[in-house]
């Protein structure tokens, strides 16, 4: 009895944390979603969520997140693959990861300069003869910047998966007469699928919810679920509607984690 009590005593702060900062916030968001802007109990927020305005917003947010995840994967997979072929792979990997340590806002801010009317991107377009364009505050710049920010997060899990692949399997495939593309399709890719899934998970969920990149880079051209939540909580003060969107975002999050299989980040 004494032992059991002792064991529980030092876990008390942790359990308090679980109750106060994990369980309570989710319940509070759920609770608030049932109140309209005047504080009356109603289902109005859910009715509003299923109107074309919010459904379109959800769909476009999904579309952007999908696009961002897909492009990141297209760039990250070959990069991770080539990284495993280099001599000092840990060092190369570190080089790829360092930019992800720089504050995200600073990187987004850099693109305000680069994509600006007289920025480097437009100078380059002038130089190759296309002529300058409006780049900032377009969906293109939003997707580009977001992909830029998330690429290291996609590379890391794929690299880890590729790196732990048993080379004997590749030799075996080779000995049995498989071509390079067959080896990739039937051996390498299926065995690194878990890394791909983890990468997609760590890119897709933030892509749905980051609001600062849309605010800084896309102006109000792109509204994601995250932007909508921030708008409702901090600008229009309609916490009920904000919570309702948050409830759906939480549901989507669980769905994605269930689809991609839960793995801790960076695993």
């Amino acid at each position: 009895m004494g032992n059991k009590f002792m064991r529980n005593v030092y876990m008390v702060p942790y359990m308090v944390w679980v109750l106060l900062f994990v369980i309570a916030p989710i319940l509070l968001v759920l609770y608030y979603s049932f109140f309209d802007i005047h504080g009356n109990f109603s289902f109005i927020n859910y009715e509003r969520f299923f109107t074309p305005v919010y459904l379109k917003l959800t769909l476009s947010s999904f579309w952007y997140a999908f696009l961002i995840t897909f492009i990141s994967l297209l760039v990250a997979y070959p990069t991770a693959y080539l990284l495993t072929k280099t001599k000092h792979k840990r060092l190369w990997l570190l080089l790829i990861i360092v930019p992800s340590w720089v504050n995200l806002l600073l990187k987004a801010y850099a693109f305000i300069g680069i994509f600006g009317a007289y920025g480097a991107a437009n100078n380059f377009l002038e130089w190759i003869g296309i002529g300058s364009r409006q780049l900032l505050f377009t969906d293109f710049s939003f997707v580009f910047v977001t992909v830029y920010i998330f690429i290291p997060f996609m590379i890391l899990p794929i690299f880890n998966a590729l790196n732990s692949l048993n080379p004997a399997l590749l030799d075996a495939a080779n000995d049995l007469g498989a071509s390079k593309s067959t080896t990739f399709r039937r051996v390498i890719f299926p065995l690194t699928l878990d890394g791909v899934k983890t990468g997609c998970q760590v890119v897709f969920i933030p892509a749905l919810s980051l609001f600062m990149i849309t605010r800084l880079i896309a102006g109000n051209r792109v509204i994601t679920l995250g932007t909508a939540i921030e708008q409702h909580f901090l600008v229009t003060q309609d916490w009920g509607m904000g919570s309702t969107i948050a409830v759906f975002l939480i549901l989507i999050m669980f769905l994605i984690i269930w689809l991609t299989g839960f793995r801790k980040r960076g695993a």
Binding site: F21, P25, V29, Q201, F233, L249, I250, M253
Partner: peptide, 14 residues
């Protein structure tokens, strides 16, 4: 795994 917006918004309510 929770998005930051959710953490922020729910803590604000809390």
């Amino acid at each position: 795994v929770s998005p930051d917006v959710i953490i922020g918004a729910s803590f604000l309510i809390l």
